[in-house]
Structure formats: structure tokens, C-alpha cells
Design a protein around this nucleic acid. Structure first.
Length: 504
RNA sequence: CGGAGUGUAGCGCAGUCUGGCUAGCGCACCUGGUUUGGGACCAGGGGGUCGUAGGUUCGAAUCCUAUCACUCCGACCA
């Protein structure tokens, strides 16, 4: 009875972008809302994607000299109080544990009992608890640097949440390092920013702008916050990763001291850096289309799905055998250093239903094999990124599978980069700035704006306008951010240029 | 915390204004059959006590009171 929709996902991006985003997640079965307010359940397909991200990042961290460790979920409240800006930044969004057991309330329910002497907070980030450990571990310059990463969950009691983009609990990694000199800590901060940018472009196929946050957007307690910023298909910016140079702020607050080679007592220089499950949101909003998710092959849980097509049991046996052989041969091929991941979907479902199932989940390549294909020693192959489909000789598919996946990966990056560049403009006056961020015809074009590269005199000077238009300064790009020019708003001389955009 | 809204089957909803047979519909699910290079069709079937508590009434999903939860819009944000 259901007429085949023109698109697998309704509404389309153009019709209602936020709703489209939710529907893509639902269609791909990545995650869902949980009974717990603001917290999501990450389903197997979404978690497999996260595991692939973890695997790649973890190797990159280890290749740059880091080790993994694990620190407690709970942080004594007094720890958080030590760094003034840090307190201010996080106090409002912390979950607090005040009791350590439950007792019957006499009405068939339970009530908290056993109040804690000092409340514990559920970590919103671990600078303070890890810093406390570092203070104990570090005595001498010989103990430095300490280069540790932790894979963990954190909790930030956000007012409004959206799957993957902002949830009360989220998964992430947080690197925390301590160094003997400012130079070394700076180098570390920049190195990890590069790692994130590299990961984003090479694996996620998401092009990013590397830059520095302005004072107003800085991490609470940091001296410098670097970030990578990506443009989503609705032309809003999404911060995809951050790397902070914390100077001696935390080491002074937490007494992370060491004796230098010359015998003097000095405070260590620390850094922290992190990316989260938000990256999955970035992936969706960069590549997915009106038929659902589109996965970059380097992170896809499954590269190829083979759909056997048959009419009866005799055919079934023949086709399945052929598919299994094809699968084995494909799995001998490689994409970079990875084995090709191939699944056979022989569930008892109708062909159309099965096809759309995999389209919505974003599997890069779909292969269909029926009796006719076997007779021709061919397979029918469809690419998720372009929608292109054709019959190819089986031997050709096996020989070129790695190259095809590589081509899909490159195509996604190329497409996303073109989209971003088309919507990035240099703006030199208020009039143009306003019209860029205000939809020309609001009813017809929910998607508008983009990245505006503008010189600006100071953060304070532009703030009222930004608030009015709901635009934020994303970053001062490392590439070209310090060239002098005229402030787009005041006309004054300006030493810096920044990317401005609406943001998530 | 301020404003608005919603809680009825796994999901999406109708019924509530104007109280009245056994609480309906679509999708999904199960069974049988016909189909099968594309999100099928026919027939049959299972599943809810209407967010929770109290009240009014011969009678409450429907009226009243309280309460809880969630969603959206703001302030806050990886």
C-alpha cells in the first residue's frame, strides 16, 4: 500500500534539516533516545562506527607516544573548585552524587540515604582528577613528559540535547599531558590538533579549518584553545575536536611541581585534548543524503554487502555458495592496511526492502548476485555515494574493490570540500555580513549562510551584532588568521581575521 | 527557571469540546496462500484499560483537583 517515496528519508534536508537528521539516525539504526533524559542508547551499527573511530585514533595516539590509562568517574567536589575559571565553566552542568545508598521510604518506594560527607561530581571532564594524580607522580624533570590518554564517558547536564551532537552523557577520549617547558607543551597541543585534523580529513572525509578560539570561546581554564571546525550541509559550523594549551593554570592550582635540572622548583605545563561521539554527528551531517547515511569506507563497519537473489531452494544453495566464495575472495583484498569487510544479507526479506535497509545504513557498496549473474560470471554493483549501479565481471570487482572504496572515500572528501568552499566568503562590511546570515527568502530557504571570513577589531566590538544574528566566531585560522586588515563592522584597523558562522 | 504543548497497542495517531454498547485506525508483528532483480498482495490473527493518584457520577479515555514524565521555544553548551 505504501507508495515508494522518492527519498528514503522524509523530510528531506531542504524541507526540515533538524528532523531529517533525526530520521537519518533512526533509518540507519545508529542510536535512539533512552528512558534517561538526555542520554542516548548507541545501537550496534552506531557503536561499530565508534569502535572504528576509536581504533584509528588510538593507533594515532600511540604512534605519537601516548599511553592509555583510566581514572575515576567520580571527582570530589573540592577538586573542581581549585581552578577558578574551570569552576565557573562547568559548575552549572554537573551531576552531583550526594548519597551512597537507598532505603525503603515506607510507601513501597526508595529514598536516598547515607549522605556523603563531601559530594562527588560525575566527571564533566577529567583535568582535575588527573591533575591530582600527576601532582603525586611528578617530582623531577625526569618524570616528564607524561603523555596519557583515557577513553571514557563524561556527563554534562545540558538543557537541550540532540543525539550525538549534544547528550547528557557522551563517550570520548581525553588526552592529558604534562611537560617541563611551555614550548614542549605548545608543541604537544599543536601536534594533537594536527592528529585530529588528519583523522577528520583522511578517515572521516570531513574537511576542517584548524584555528584558535577567541577568549570568549575558550575552554574554561585554558590559555589557548585550538579547534577544528567543519561545515555541515545546512552550512552551520560544528566543532569537531579541541586541543588546549593549559599553561600553568592547572598545575598551579593543583601543585603539579617538579625540580628542574638546575635544581629549581617549577610548575609543569599541561595540555588536554579530546574528541567525542559528536564526530558521528559530524559524519552524518557532512555525508548523509535524502536516502540516509553515507559512510566513508575507512570507517564503515561494513564495506560491501552482498544480497543473494533466488527463487527457490535449489537456486538458493547455488547462489549462496557463489556469494560465499565471492565474499572470501573480496576479503583477501585490502583498503589501505584494512581487510575488506564483507557481509552477506540472506535474510528472508523482500529484495526492495533489503536494498533500502542497506542504503539507509550507508554501506559503501551493495552487490547483488542472482542466477543470471552467475551464468555471466558477473555481479551487479551499486555505489552508495553516487548511486551509480552497473553489472561488472566478478573478476573485475575483486581486482578493483580496494580502488573503488578508495575512490568513494576521496569522492566524499572532495564533495564535502567543494560544498564548504562554495559557502565560504570573505566579507568586509556589515551590510554584506547581515544579508549573508539572514535568509533572503526565509520560507523557501531554510538553509543559508555559511562561513564568513572577516577581519574584526575585537570580540567585544562585534558581540552585539553576533548575538543579534546568532552568529559566533568559530576560530582564528592558523592559516591566514593573523594578516592585518580593516574591521568589517567598525572599519578600524584589525590585526586578526576569523571565521564567523552559525554553529551547533 | 520562564512560555507553549503532549501523555490512549512496539511506533504514529483518532476519540476528550458535547461522559453512555465489547476503546478504534494506519504502520509494524504472527499464520496461511499468491508473489519475488526491488520498499508486494489477499485472507486470518495476537497485542492496549487510555501517564499516575484522588474526586464527581448510575456510568469517566472524556468533567474536576493534584502529581509525574516527555517534547518544542528561550537562557547554557563537546
Amino acid at each position: 500500500m505504501n507508495k515508494p517515496a522518492k527519498t528514503a528519508i522524509t523530510p528531506t534536508r531542504q524541507q526540515d534539516y533538524p528532523e531529517w537528521y533525526q530520521q537519518v539516525i533512526k533509518g540507519a539504526d545508529l542510536a535512539e533516545n533512552s528512558p534517561v533524559r538526555g542520554c542516548m542508547v548507541i545501537k550496534p551499527w552506531g557503536y561499530a562506527l565508534w569502535e572504528n573511530m576509536q581504533r584509528v585514533l588510538d593507533k594515532m595516539f600511540k604512534d605519537t607516544g601516548h599511553q592509555n590509562a583510566y581514572f575515576p568517574l567520580f571527582i570530589p567536589m573540592s577538586f573542581l573548585e581549585k581552578e577558578a575559571q574551570h569552576v565557573e565553566g562547568f559548575a552549572k552542568e554537573c551531576a552531583v552524587v550526594t548519597h551512597h545508598r537507598l532505603e525503603p521510604d515506607g510507601k513501597g518506594g526508595l529514598r536516598p540515604a547515607g549522605p556523603l560527607e563531601e559530594p562527588l561530581i560525575v566527571r564533566p571532564t577529567s583535568e582535575t582528577i588527573i591533575g591530582a594524580c600527576y601532582a603525586k607522580w611528578i617530582q623531577s624533570y625526569r618524570d616528564l613528559p607524561i603523555l596519557i590518554n583515557q577513553w571514557a564517558n563524561v556527563v554534562r547536564w545540558e538543557m537541550r540535547t540532540r543525539l550525538f551532537l549534544r547528550t547528557a552523557e557522551f563517550l570520548w577520549q581525553e588526552g592529558h599531558t604534562a611537560h617541563a617547558t611551555a614550548e614542549e607543551a605548545m608543541e604537544e597541543t599543536r601536534k594533537m590538533l594536527e592528529v585530529y585534523a588528519d583523522f577528520s580529513e583522511r578517515f572521516m572525509a570531513v574537511p576542517v579549518i584548524k584555528g584558535e578560539k577567541t577568549a570568549g570561546e575558550r575552554f574554561p581554564g585554558a590559555v589557548i584553545t585550538y579547534c577544528i571546525e567543519a561545515m555541515m550541509q545546512d552550512r552551520k559550523a560544528l566543532q569537531a575536536g579541541t586541543s588546549h594549551f593549559l599553561g600553568q593554570n592547572f598545575s598551579k592550582a593543583q601543585e603539579i611541581k617538579f625540580q628542574s635540572q638546575s635544581g629549581e622548583t617549577e610548575f609543569a605545563w599541561t595540555t588536554s585534548w579530546g574528541v567525542s561521539t559528536r564526530l558521528i554527528g559530524a559524519l552524518i551531517m557532512t555525508h548523509a543524503d535524502d536516502d540516509g547515511l553515507v559512510l566513508p569506507p575507512r570507517l564503515a563497519p561494513s564495506h560491501v554487502v552482498i544480497m543473494p537473489i533466488y527463487r527457490d531452494d535449489t537456486q538458493r544453495a547455488e547462489v549462496l555458495a557463489y556469494c560465499q566464495k565471492l565474499r572470501r575472495e573480496l576479503m583477501l583484498q585490502r583498503l589501505d592496511d584494512q581487510t575488506i569487510r564483507v557481509d552477506i544479507d540472506d535474510r528472508d526479506l523482500r529484495g526492495g526492502e533489503k536494498k533500502w535497509y542497506h542504503v539507509k545504513r550507508g554501506v559503501p557498496i551493495r552487490v547483488e548476485v542472482g542466477p543470471k549473474d552467475i551464468a555471466n560470471q558477473a555481479v551487479f554493483m551499486a555505489r552508495r555515494d553516487t548511486g551509480e549501479s552497473k553489472s561488472v565481471p566478478q573478476v573485475e570487482l575483486i581486482a578493483t574493490i580496494g580502488a573503488i572504496l578508495d575512490d568513494i572515500q576521496n569522492n566524499l572528501l572532495k564533495r564535502a570540500t567543494a560544498m564548504r568552499d562554495e559557502n565560504t566568503v570573505t566579507i568586509t562590511n556589515e551590510q554584506d555580513f547581515r544579508s549573508f546570515f539572514k535568509s533572503e527568502s526565509e520560507e523557501n530557504s531554510p538553509i543559508h549562510g555559511g562561513f564568513a571570513k572577516c577581519h574584526f577589531a575585537s570580540e567585544d566590538a562585534v558581540k552585539p551584532l553576533l548575538d543579534e544574528l546568532k552568529v559566533t566566531i568559530r576560530c582564528i585560522p592558523l592559516d591566514g588568521g593573523n594578516t592585518p586588515g580593516k574591521c568589517f563592522l567598525t572599519g578600524q584597523d584589525a590585526a586578526q581575521m576569523a571565521y564567523f558562522a552559525k554553529a551547533y
